[in-house]
Simulated assay, not measured.
Amino acid sequence: MHKHFIIYKPYGFLSQFKSNDSKQQKKRFLGELHNFPEDIMSIGRLDEKSEGLLLLTTDGKISDYINSQKVDKEYYAQVDGDITDKAIEIMKSGVEIGFNGKKYITKPCEVFRLKNIPELPTRSKKIRDKRHGPTSWVSLTLNEGKFRQVRKMTSAVGFPTLRLVRVRIGNIHLNKMGVGDVIKVTKFF
Rank of each mutant, 00 (worst) to 15 (best):
H2S: 15
H2Y: 08
K3A: 13
H4Y: 15
H4V: 06
F5I: 07
F5V: 04
I6D: 09
I7E: 04
I7K: 02
Y8C: 05
K9I: 06
P10M: 00
F13G: 04
F13I: 02
L14V: 10
S19I: 09
D21Q: 07
S22R: 14
Q24A: 14
Q25T: 06
K27N: 15
K27I: 00
F29W: 01
L30M: 02
G31Y: 04
H34K: 00
F36R: 02
P37Y: 00
E38D: 14
D39M: 11
M41D: 12
I43C: 10
I43K: 10
D47V: 03
K49Q: 10
E51N: 01
E51G: 01
G52K: 01
G52R: 00
G52L: 01
L55T: 08
L56V: 04
L56M: 05
L56T: 05
K61V: 13
D64I: 10
Y65M: 13
Y65E: 13
N67G: 12
S68P: 08
D72G: 09
D72K: 13
E74A: 11
Y75I: 01
A77C: 06
A77Q: 03
Q78L: 14
D82L: 11
D82V: 03
T84P: 08
A87D: 03
I88T: 04
E89Q: 14
I90S: 06
M91F: 02
K92E: 12
E96H: 14
I97H: 05
G98P: 08
N100L: 12
G101C: 09
K102M: 13
K103A: 15
I105P: 09
T106D: 09
K107V: 08
R113C: 05
K115H: 08
N116E: 15
I117W: 07
I117N: 15
P118S: 03
L120V: 05
R123E: 12
K125Y: 13
D129V: 07
G133S: 02
P134M: 01
P134H: 05
T135M: 00
T135F: 05
T135K: 01
T135H: 09
T135I: 05
S136D: 04
S136G: 02
W137D: 03
W137N: 03
V138S: 04
V138D: 04
V138A: 02
V138L: 13
S139E: 09
L140H: 07
N143R: 11
N143V: 07
N143Q: 14
N143G: 10
E144K: 12
E144M: 08
G145H: 04
M153R: 00
S155T: 08
V157F: 00
L162I: 02
R163M: 03
L164F: 06
R166W: 05
R166D: 04
V167L: 09
V167D: 08
R168G: 11
H173D: 12
H173K: 15
N175L: 12
N175G: 09
K176I: 10
V179H: 06
D181R: 04
I183A: 11
I183G: 09
K184T: 13
V185H: 11
T186D: 14
T186C: 13
T186N: 12
K187N: 12
